[in-house]
Design a protein around this nucleic acid. Structure first.
Lengths: 188, 188
DNA sequence: CCATGTAAATACACTCGTCAGTATACTTCG
DNA sequence: CGAAGTATACTGACGAGTGTATTTACATGG
């Protein structure tokens, strides 16, 4: 059962991501992560020095994945359609049976009082990248003041995630999409 | 040092609120709460049967306080001014040195995978009440489609809390206020 | 083709700390 | 007396991280 270092590392990151995402940081034990990765705890600690580091690495890894996914997202064409498909995607994501909100925001909330935690700056960079991606997409669609519009869409997106989680009601994503489309209309 | 049952109960709720709000549910121990309330743990357990119940009672209590505070909020007059003062209040709140986001949202996020937890329905009711309060305020100001507009403002508010926490940048509240004002304009 | 070294992982017991919740006997105040 | 609380020690569980000896599989060189 010899596996390459990289391979095992990835297995651990995948396992950690799935668990952190569903149950948060504090409610997941290192033993659980190791078990899910099909590995012993001792072996896990040969790859990551501590649970906090593992969490930071996990976030960094899933940020990469999420941003790759965004890059593949259809962004050209009319901004209304772009916004619609963006929020439709969000809504579909939230439809997963055990959806527990966005992983990045969740982590930041959970570690809200720990200002210096490495995971927080990763989450910050991630959100900044998404906002930038939105601004680029809007500019491509001919929207002016893309920076402000992109921020507004970020606000609506984060709000939709929180309220969908609180109420278990996905229609908040639709409301957010309608609001976003009105906000980017030229006539306004 | 004889105190009335009600008095002690309130001291505990206050202590718990302060700690839960800053550090979340999991990161606070019952011992800490008791110490902060100036009481022994044993005495605390004569008022609340478990930490989970205490948390639920704490949320219910602080929901009452928050809604009383909202009721005292100036709501009459021009909707633009109403929205401005609402988000200004939010921004000021977030300026507190150790601000850690909204307590209700934080709790829901932290317990995201525990669907049946009593604290969650309290948070849900709270957000519903706030949304209703917003709709009433908008209607008073002559805004039409107040329900949809109120939902949009909720989205912007929750988003602003999340992003202010993530980035440590209060300007998201201003962006949210501007967006909200544009969304309620009659001409739209 | 086989020996042997070595990286990766196992098995498993153990330390140390934390924390929810309990038990029991005592105290204070009205 | 009785309600409210103190003091203090305890149980039982869980979890992060370590120590140590052992095993598996591949690589390389003879």
């Amino acid at each position: 059962m010899k596996r390459s270092k990289q391979q095992t590392r990835l297995r651990i990151l995948d396992a950690a991501f799935g668990l952190f995402w569903r149950q948060g940081f504090l409610r997941v034990s290192v033993d659980e992560i190791a078990a899910r990765a099909g590995i012993t705890k001792r072996a896990l600690y040969q790859h990551f020095p501590s649970k906090d580091d593992l969490m930071a690495m996990t976030l960094a890894h899933s940020s990469k994945l999420a941003i790759d996914r965004l890059r593949a997202f259809p962004r050209a064409g009319e901004p209304g359609a772009f916004i619609d498909s963006f929020f439709a995607d969000l809504s579909e994501w939230a439809a997963k049976p055990k959806w527990s909100g966005g992983g990045f925001t969740r982590v930041v909330v959970e570690l809200a009082d720990l200002r210096g935690h490495p995971a927080r700056s990763i989450a910050r960079n991630h959100k900044t990248a998404v906002e930038q991606w939105l601004a680029d997409g809007l500019a491509t669609g001919g929207v002016s003041s893309q920076r402000e519009r992109a921020r507004e869409i970020m606000l609506l997106t984060e709000g939709a995630m929180a309220l969908m989680l609180i109420h278990g009601d996905r229609s908040y994503a639709q409301t957010a999409a309608r609001a976003a489309k009105r906000l980017v209309r030229k006539e306004y």
